[in-house]
Simulated assay, not measured.
Amino acid sequence: MTDGKIRVGIAGGAGYTGGELLRILINHPAVDIICIHSNSNAGNPVYEVHTDLYGDTDLKFTSTLSQNIDVLFLCVGHGDARKFLDANTIGDSVKIIDLSQDFRLAQNSKLKDRSFVYGLPELNRDKIKTASNIANPGCFATTIEIGLLPLAAKGLLNSEIHINATTGSTGAGQSLAATSHFTWRNNNLSIYKAFGHQHLNEIGETLTALQDGFDQTINFIPQRGDFTRGILAAIYLESDLTLEEATQIYDDFYAGHPFTHVSTKNIDLKQVVNTNKALVHIEKHGNKLFIISMLDNLLKGASGHAVQNMNLMFGLEETIGLKLKASAF
């Protein structure tokens, strides 16, 4: 650190998560951005790719990774983070925050002498504070885990779990595919990877960390929404809890976590889009406990979450640089 500021490097700065990270960090009072790595955009000003940053920064992309950094954010594709670390020399003192899925599962959490901690502050805040390497959680996984962690902590996930969750188009990444074109996505809704989404293993492993022996089936139906950003997860399971008991469990679990809030009123995506907040709402219908969980997939589901982890790792106030405004309308 120089002059009390964290020297930051970003790999994969041209994509959606890289762009969101830049938007946060150029306004973060404790950060100096040293390098933004991108082979395809080397030498180009950042604002030529992220045009909304015109007038905010004169930073340029580079094809070389500076060694003069304190932390490296990996905003590269799934499978590419491990390749990037293998191909580049990273100083032992440099902390790493990986936004891909490469190191999230326990069986994949090591690379050479580096071990990665699962970066969900609502679960692992104390471990994150002393960690050198963080595996940032997935966006669907974060949404669903926040909806279920309080019950797992009490050993109350004792029936099948049913989840229907809808994500915006940015969840598919910046590369074009048939299902990400505007003409297909607009005024459309579709299901994909029903019962087999890649985040299921991550979710199961996280719930088991709190509820030993957890083995219930998670029925997860992901949907593609015709909006840009945000995730809404509708979750239900059988439960003997009253609404008052369930609400108290959630309030107690998230007390002291500045970005996760339990609402007594129904919630909607515009309350969380453009923020690092996660909102939860609970209802009771007969013997079913119904939980709504939502967040912005690019912020609390990715880049904002990564900055939250950086703040914890460097002993900063957890919310610094992340007091962002919801779109509201």
Rank of each mutant, 00 (worst) to 15 (best):
A131I: 06
K154M: 06
A234V: 05
Q216P: 05
G196Y: 08
L157C: 08
F227A: 06
F259K: 04
L200K: 14
L200R: 13
K193S: 14
T242Q: 09
T166Q: 15
L148W: 00
T167A: 15
I163E: 03
L210C: 10
E202D: 13
C139S: 15
G213E: 00
L241W: 05
G168T: 03
G147A: 04
N219H: 15
T142L: 02
I146Q: 04
T208C: 05
A177Y: 02
D215Q: 06
D251M: 04
T206D: 01
T183K: 11
I218R: 01
T217I: 05
G225R: 07
A233M: 03
I134C: 08
E145I: 14
D251S: 11
N201H: 07
L232G: 09
I146L: 14
F182P: 06
L189N: 07
T142G: 00
D226C: 13
P137G: 06
I134D: 12
G155V: 03
V262W: 00
A165N: 01
T170L: 14
A141D: 10
Q216R: 13
L232T: 15
H199F: 12
T208K: 13
D215S: 14
L243R: 05
A255S: 14
S175F: 15
I163K: 06
G168M: 02
I249H: 11
T130W: 01
S159Y: 01
A246G: 07
L210E: 09
D251F: 11
L149R: 01
R125Q: 12
T143G: 10
S169H: 04
F195E: 14
I231D: 13
I231K: 11
L151E: 02
V262H: 02
N201P: 09
I163C: 11
A194V: 14
Y236D: 06
H181R: 15
H261Q: 12
A131M: 09
L200S: 09
L151H: 09
Q211M: 04
S263C: 11
N188G: 10
I161S: 05
I144S: 07
L148A: 01
D226L: 08
G256N: 10
N124Q: 09
I203F: 06
A141P: 09
A153P: 00
T130A: 14
L200N: 11
A209G: 10
A165F: 02
T260A: 15
I163F: 00
F259Q: 04
T217E: 07
I191E: 10
I218H: 00
L207H: 01
S132N: 15
I249G: 06
L232S: 12
N124F: 10
